[in-house]
Amino acid sequence: MMADVMTVLWKELKEILEFSGARSGWLRLALWFGVFGIFLPLQMQEEWLSSPIVLYNWSWFPLFVVSSVAAGAFAGERERHTLETLLASRLSDRAILFGKIAAGVVYGWGLTLPSILLGLVTVNVVRWQGTIQWYRPEIAVGGVVLSLVAALLGSVLGAFASLRASTARQAQQTLSLINMLVLFVPLFGLQALPAELKEQVWSALAGLDLTRVVLIALAVLVALSVALLAATLARFRRARLILD
């Protein structure tokens, strides 16, 4: 099955690259690298290399990036009338699904890693201190691993939403809503807490071992991904996909 997954991945990446090569694609990439590789590191400066909040960014950003391509995984094929021919091929359900999910992961993670590096360059350029400043090890490793798992979650979520959506836009709207909830609920939720409780939460967070936080976050993201993957596989029915 691996060869079939790689075949689907090859096609998906070809289509994504062709789409990214268009003017709108370049603008999107420029915006992505500009915000997450330059603007935010400029705002946070040295904090960008050591603050645990950066890990939250690297967990959320891939979800955001992946949603733009994952939403089209099935809905886009349905919209462009290519889905039925794909389903009439010898590819198994799993090969199609895993190939599309893998493409989202490669795209999301593939954009996140250069952004992590670009952030490092930005901070060093504006706050040069004679030697290169590096990410704190837990932040570097956590950022790389968490962004990978977040890209996986985003891609699975995209495939799940895309299976029944009639258009890629419809699937993307669903994913955007989820992304907004992931982004804003923790931020505004924390803000809405009474001052005393908020203080307690902050001190509790500050007292946590960062490695443990990363591991817990990883476990949660992996568990969510596996559960969603199982639900997506259960939802994948050729007859339904054609008749929808």
């Binding site: 079939d4 090859w10 096609k11 070809k14 009338h81 290519t82 091929s89 010898r90």
Partner: peptide, 28 residues
């Protein structure tokens, strides 16, 4: 089997060669 269904099922963002390459890979 080979199939040309109700819609041609071609990927318009890919070249003609890539479309056949994809289905050739699928057919191993």
């Amino acid at each position: 089997t080979g199939a040309l269904l109700e819609h041609n099922g071609l990927y318009e963002r890919l070249t003609a060669e890539d479309n056949l390459e994809f289905y050739g890979r699928i057919a191993r």
